[in-house]
Design a protein around this nucleic acid. Structure first.
Lengths: 350, 350
DNA sequence: TAACTCGATGTTAGCGCTACCATCGAGTAA
DNA sequence: TTACTCGATGGTAGCGCTAACATCGAGTTA
């Protein structure tokens, strides 16, 4: 019973192939392909016959073969530092919602904030012939630039608004947003500030926020009480940073946390230490996560378009793949959301 | 200059193909393939020559073609309800860490807790011929079961410990964990409980926790003051649920929130309302997210192996793909972490 | 009626890689 | 020496699908 000669079927699987569907529908394989991929090119009656055959056989097209033949994979590579940071989870949600609507799948990679790992991931994802790539930030290893330059696919950088993107870009100015945060603190009468920010090496978002902070200090004539504290996002790290600031530089009257999780951790530490917020010390965060609006006191923060970065990156990619010529740089808005963790003065608009 | 006859190259891309690497290395294509995929089958000198040629040309293997030819894609489909729930982000991190180490890519799908969307995703992911599938829970649409049954690949169900898994399973007993939570409350002297849980329709984790809660009530002779409140995870929903409970049934002396985010929201609401925790009301959460240990008061909760579920699911999949026969059901441990949001009595071990 | 258009469908030849089998030469056993 | 094994390498034929071109018949124009 086994085939005697060459391999007639290498796959041990019992998968239905397009040929079988074609036979059942009484058409050729290419017509089945067209009925599924470009239905408008197939007569309605034929199409229905094909769809019925697909239904009856339980046919699932082999996209690997289709992609290989057509040179279009309907797959998008997505690289984030980590999914466990909810700002990136929100971005992925935005990407996923738009892409799956259009029939695209997401290939996910996590770089752990390492440019070397990112380069490896780019290489690994390119091997899958994705239709496009969505990456985070604009600071990449040289090898990444080489790879992206050689790969002939659309690339969207997110969470950044660099001068010269690799290809396309969706984000906002981290620097301007941080500046706005400082402006808000200045308007509240705070004068002696501290900065707590994510580790800045290889992280252009964090770096931009520091630059905006520095620009704000200079512009409003404020002073910085101690060098920036670099801490990965976690409540504990925020609490520790708060402790370090008020112990080392008790005259500090406000702290800018470049992340709401850090800021929330600090607020909780203030509670434990009975430090009055916003009077003894003002706290401003960044991202406008849900925790900001629910903390006691409620946390002033900078709202950024976390979900929309993803959704717009996806739309940009799809338009480009559809052959539209598009504006390659999209700069979205941010907004300072004044709440109870900072003093307000009238007319505090940014 | 353009090729006159048939398409000589359909892809407009300038990608390097295996043939070119082979020529440069002075070997055949198949030897290049072997040098990259099964290096031990190639003489060391030859291997080095190939690797040098790969380096020089910047060759990136076309995995689509490779997968099609070999019927192994080194891709794993992962379906979660949403990445924005950090418990699933942690699971994905665990999966990703183990799988990328082994050279596998993740194809990600989000079902939004809908069995119908999940079925669509299973179908879409199967079309990519993944080496395996990791899905969430054990409550699936009929179509999903049909698809998984027909697909001849390993499947891991996670976050559950159903009697009869589709194939493999990594999780813990949500019911036992919830029972343990109630046991802890009972030991603290709480007698009139309320339950706040994720919407239970199509969510076997939530359902299991409710069952464990009910079993705990019966076993310890406690009463439930109002029907379970179903709420999606968010701080606000937790706060609202707390408000609803103490307004509708003020005699309630403890609440079991089947999720730390809900519980944390409730703790914050208690603060706003000056409700004393744990004396006026005890609060216990679930998941042991970082927020639990940082809240004021610190939140008693049930620690569950969020990351390990993903890591173990990945390892299971890899072992199975390597041909090992493995125990298909892995039940991990949970632990009640007693903190300040519930009263303790001595010997409170679960 | 001839010439042409156009929608619908089919035939053929790959996409880039790897499974299968063949080959070949060196080492080993008799 | 002959026969055999065995590691290393290569030739060939697909994997399942779709691009490109061909075909064919009905409708349309002059």
């Amino acid at each position: 019973m086994a085939s005697p000669g060459k391999r007639t079927s290498r796959s041990g699987s019992n998968k239905v192939r397009i040929e079988e569907v074609a036979r059942l529908a009484g058409v050729s394989a290419i017509t089945v392909s067209r009925a599924l991929n470009t239905p408008q090119k197939v007569n309605e009656a034929t199409r229905n016959a094909v769809l019925k055959a697909v239904e009856d056989t339980g046919y699932i097209p082999n996209r690997l073969a289709g992609s290989l033949a057509s040179n279009r994979s309907r797959t998008v590579g997505v690289i984030v530092p980590t999914v466990t940071n909810s700002i990136f989870a929100d971005k992925i949600k935005g990407l996923s919602d738009v892409l799956s609507e259009a029939g695209y799948q997401i290939l996910l990679g996590q770089s752990g904030y390492s440019p070397e790992v990112e380069a490896e991931l780019v290489s690994a994802l390119l091997a899958q012939s994705p239709s496009g790539l969505v990456i985070t930030g604009s600071a990449h290893a040289l090898r990444t630039h080489t790879l992206l330059g050689r790969a002939d696919i659309p690339v969207v950088e997110t969470w950044t608004n660099a001068e010269a993107p690799v290809d396309m870009q969706v984000g906002f100015s981290n620097e301007d947003a941080a500046f706005a945060a400082v402006a808000h603190l200045a308007a509240g009468g705070y004068r002696s500030l501290a900065l707590v920010v994510a580790p800045m090496v290889h992280n252009d978002r964090a770096l931009g926020r520091k630059r905006g902070f520095d620009r704000g200090l200079a512009h409003f004539g404020l002073r910085q009480t101690l060098p920036p504290i670099e801490a990965e996002f976690s409540l504990r790290n925020g609490a520790d940073a708060l402790a370090r600031v008020i112990e080392a530089q008790p005259q500090t009257d406000a702290i800018f946390f470049a992340n709401d999780v850090l800021a929330a951790g600090a607020l909780l530490e203030c509670r434990r230490r009975n430090v009055a917020v916003p009077d003894r010390i003002g706290i401003i965060g960044f991202d406008d996560l849900e925790i900001a609006s629910e903390m006691v006191p409620r946390l002033t923060t900078v709202a950024v378009p976390r979900y929309d970065i993803g959704a717009n990156a996806a739309r940009m990619l799809l338009r480009r793949l559809a052959g539209e010529t598009i504006q390659p740089k999209l700069t979205l808005d941010f907004e300072v959301v004044a709440r109870e963790s900072t003093r307000r003065t009238c007319g505090d608009r940014v």
